[in-house]
């Protein structure tokens, strides 16, 4: 049977680098779509991602808005509204961190990290609702949400909050035909991981304890996103799915 391709309108926060870029690329590769790529830092990399997405004959718009600030999220959705009156998919990849013990996190740092990683997601979802009549929302979380990882605490608590939001929004929005799910990712070879204190030692330790024998790739995460935005996952609601090569089992 020939599949009828309808144009998907997709917003990806943190969509221009690392995992976010791969997710954007993969969606562009597999769908007819209009991509809204939100980012804050690194104009060159953002432009590069836009070019990659456009290479798949998808439209792409770069949105430079800091989602720690609700006013900026308002502005971002106002801009989205200039292009379309509907959104089909929201992917939340945007995240910031400060790699140090929780005992040294300052209040302003806590606020900023929480506001980008968790509150920013919630407010984006709220702003999505008028535009989303049935759709999929996926948040990218990490194992720190449920496991102690040294020097990772500032991110961990925001990911725990993010996963709670996924669970609750999943239940709240399912009756409207909007499926909200999360991905709890194990260690992936990102630029952020390379900045992790003693990153080499951490990766070696993770590898020793990972049954799959390797750390994750961007594509591992993007593949799961692809599944979660497809009708094949229609009965999955409000779940945070662990994807870590079996690391959390050991």
């Amino acid at each position: 049977m020939t599949q009828i391709n309808k144009t998907l309108n997709v917003l990806v926060t943190g969509g221009t680098r690392g995992i976010g870029r791969e997710i954007s690329r993969m969606i562009a590769e597999k769908h007819v779509c209009r991509m809204f790529l939100d980012y804050v830092q690194n104009d060159e990399e953002a432009q590069r991602t836009k070019t990659i997405v456009e290479g798949f004959n998808c439209e792409a718009a770069l949105l430079k808005y800091n989602i720690s600030n609700p006013d900026m999220i308002d502005d971002m959705f106002n801009e989205v509204g200039k292009y379309t009156s509907k959104l089909d998919i929201l992917i939340h990849c945007a995240a910031i961190n400060s790699f140090k013990p929780l005992t040294r996190i300052k209040p302003n740092q806590w606020d900023l990290i929480m506001n980008v990683n968790a509150r920013g997601f919630l407010y984006c979802v709220q702003k999505c609702l008028p535009l989303m009549n049935k759709g999929c929302i996926v948040a990218i979380s990490s194992l720190g949400s449920r496991k102690f990882i040294p020097n990772y605490g500032s991110l961990s608590q925001t990911k725990s909050a993010l996963e709670s939001l996924v669970r609750d929004l999943g239940a709240e929005l399912a009756p409207r035909g909007i499926r909200v799910n999360g991905i709890t990712a194990g260690i992936v070879g990102t630029e952020a991981v390379s900045r992790f204190p003693l990153s080499k030692l951490v990766i070696e330790d993770v590898l020793r304890r990972t049954p799959a024998g390797r750390i994750g790739s961007f594509a591992d995460i993007a593949n799961l996103v692809e599944f979660l935005i497809s009708p094949k996952s229609d009965w999955i609601i409000g779940q945070n799915i662990v994807i870590d090569g079996g690391y959390s089992l050991t």
């Binding site: 830092q41 104009d43 430079k64 800091n66 720690s68 600030n69 910031i96 302003n108 740092q109 900023l112």
Partner: peptide, 23 residues
């Protein structure tokens, strides 16, 4: 201050003065 603090300061400056500051 740490780099994250500078980011926080930058965002607040953008917010208060209505200006955009690049990376």
């Amino acid at each position: 201050a740490e780099s994250l603090d500078l980011l926080d300061i930058r965002y607040e400056i953008e917010n208060k003065f209505g200006i955009k500051i690049s990376d």
